[in-house]
């Protein structure tokens, strides 16, 4: 993390009420071959907050999310969830930790071979000894929470994009997780459906007090839901803190991002010619 970001984080920590961190990321490094994807990223996610990871395409925000939820091991650094170091734990420990977490993927990631109700019931059937009648009540309750009451018999391919995401959300909260992750929740949705999902995120936090981590680049959504944000640019955390603080951050990329300004960087013609003749082996 650069000095600006570190400064922002400490400023935010001073101004925010003292809450324990649920996720602690320190000096995270990721390499894919010789490509440096995440560079010394550090931040905390506090209990009960909505924390948004922001950044343009290729900034490393999805990679960061995959590290936090344990789908990808980082090259270096530390990630603690509920106080447990997760970088070097085994699969069995991860499985236990994941039962306290819920993830909503971009497309909902519902299992097409099952009905919507069976998708939501799956974690309950696998991890609890609840009788079928109680599972049925839980399924209807969770689907009701995401405004999909009565849809349990439909198959995922009979739902619209927004409904799939809400059904995916019902499955993600089936086990009442303490932390909920959203990967690009508004991607592919019309503005009304996107706004509906934002409302749902706020309602879930208000109802269950969940800690919520959202990866997105949708500014309208960020302004509506974020308590604090982390801004990534080319794998570096350029700003961390409350949204209003980060929006005032003088970093060029932060200002470009929040004010929707195009990149004015000119490409050197000689460098561009080298790139073309190297057959893609050289970076621009």
């Amino acid at each position: 993390m650069n000095e600006t970001a570190a400064g922002r984080q400490s400023t935010s920590a001073e101004s925010a009420p003292a809450r324990e961190p649920v996720i602690e990321v320190r000096n995270l490094e990721t390499y894919f071959g010789d490509r440096h994807i995440l560079k010394d990223v550090s931040f905390d996610v506090l209990r009960g907050e909505i924390f948004v990871i922001l950044g343009g395409s290729g900034s490393g925000k999805s990679t960061l999310l995959r590290h936090i939820i344990g789908l990808l091991r980082p090259s270096g650094g530390s990630i603690k969830i509920f106080g447990h170091e997760t970088v070097d734990i085994g699969e069995e420990e991860w499985e236990k930790l994941r039962r306290r977490m819920g993830v909503l993927y971009q497309g909902g990631a519902l299992f097409n071979s099952m009905s919507v109700g069976d998708n939501v019931a799956l974690p309950l059937r696998e991890f609890t000894d609840l009788p079928e009648a109680t599972i049925g009540i839980q399924v209807r309750l969770k689907l009701g929470l995401v405004d999909l009451a009565g849809f349990e018999r439909l198959r995922p391919d009979q739902l619209s994009g927004g409904m799939k995401k809400r059904a995916g959300l019902a499955r993600a909260i089936a086990m009442d997780p303490q932390v909920l992750f959203f990967d690009e929740p508004s991607a592919g949705l019309d503005p009304i459906a996107g706004a509906g999902l934002d409302e749902l995120i706020l309602r879930l936090r208000a109802t269950f007090g969940m800690t919520i981590v959202v990866v997105t680049h949708e500014m309208e959504s960020v302004k509506k839901i974020a308590d604090r944000v982390l801004m990534l640019f080319k794998g570096e955390a350029v700003a961390v803190g409350r949204l209003d603080e980060v929006m005032k951050n003088p970093h060029l990329r932060v200002q470009q991002f929040f004010h929707r300004q195009a990149d004015e960087e000119k490409v050197d013609p000689r460098q561009y010619l080298d790139y073309l003749t190297a057959g893609g082996r050289r970076e621009l």
Binding site: I69, G70, L71, E91, W94, E95, K96, R98, R99, M101, G102, V103, Y105, Q106, G107, A109, L110, F111, N112, L122, P123, E126, F127, G168, R171, F181
Partner: peptide, 17 residues
């Protein structure tokens, strides 16, 4: 197809191997 639709990841993150 399940991998492409992130369904395999969804299984992992639900704690289902």
């Amino acid at each position: 197809s399940m991998k492409m639709a992130e369904e395999v990841d969804a299984l992992s993150t639900m704690g289902l191997n």
